[in-house]
Design a protein around this nucleic acid. Structure first.
Lengths: 112, 112
DNA sequence: ACTATATATCGTATATTGACGATAAACGAT
DNA sequence: ATCGTTTATCGTCAATATACGATATATAGT
């Protein structure tokens, strides 16, 4: 169904990137998948489906979103697909989110 | 229109919380608003509207989402509404996101 | 009281997401 | 070759999100 297609015109590039990370994490299924992949280090979708209260096709969709954001990579291995976290990309995401958070915290000193 | 109502049954509470923060940040308008509020420390909606490529009513909706997540607080001040970042809550969000990120990075060592 | 201004809310249209079952595609095993 | 298994994709439906104009509400200033 295509990935998140936010209206990105008129926004600063930095901001759009942050919002994209937000989208990637915006569903419990995807957060769970990332956590599972990190824990197991090498994971096939079947096992992932077993850990989620969702249909196989739905899980596949969430995997697609994560793949499209580059957070995971999928490799065919026989009849299975081996999904792995892209640690590099996860670090990049966290770096971006932290940069955002730091900006907020550094400046926020509201006296309302 | 109500805030994000993800299907939260069957997921771990921690994960759901992370996903909610994701949702809050999942739109460039909301990321921009948070950034602006942090920068200006005391901000009224009107000025925010001027900085966004969106209609006033749409901005108001995004403000509502942020309010409902507790990331900002709105206070009436004459004909205006003074919106402020809730620094406490922002810290909580970043702490949650970092906890999540750390879990991923600590464990992720995929040999695929 | 009237007017102008600022903001929230309502009504509504459209787009996107999320969900599932069914099917297709790819592979391993027999 | 056929069958079973695994996963991706398709078709479809329901729910949400996003967007805007119009309207309501509240306040300040005259």
């Amino acid at each position: 169904m295509g990935v998140a297609r936010i209206r990105e015109t008129g926004f600063v590039a930095d901001v759009v990137r942050t919002a994209r990370w937000g989208r990637a994490l915006a569903h419990p299924a995807r957060v769970t998948i990332l956590t599972l992949l990190a824990e197991r280090q090498t994971c096939v979708c079947g096992e992932i489906v077993d850990d989620l209260p969702l249909a196989q096709s739905t899980v596949s969709q969430h995997l697609r979103v994560l793949r499209e954001e580059g957070l995971i990579t999928g490799e065919v291995d026989g009849t299975r697909s081996c999904y792995c976290i892209d640690a590099e990309r996860v670090r990049a995401m966290m770096a971006d989110l932290n940069r955002f958070g730091t900006t907020l915290e550094r400046k926020a000193a509201c006296g309302c």
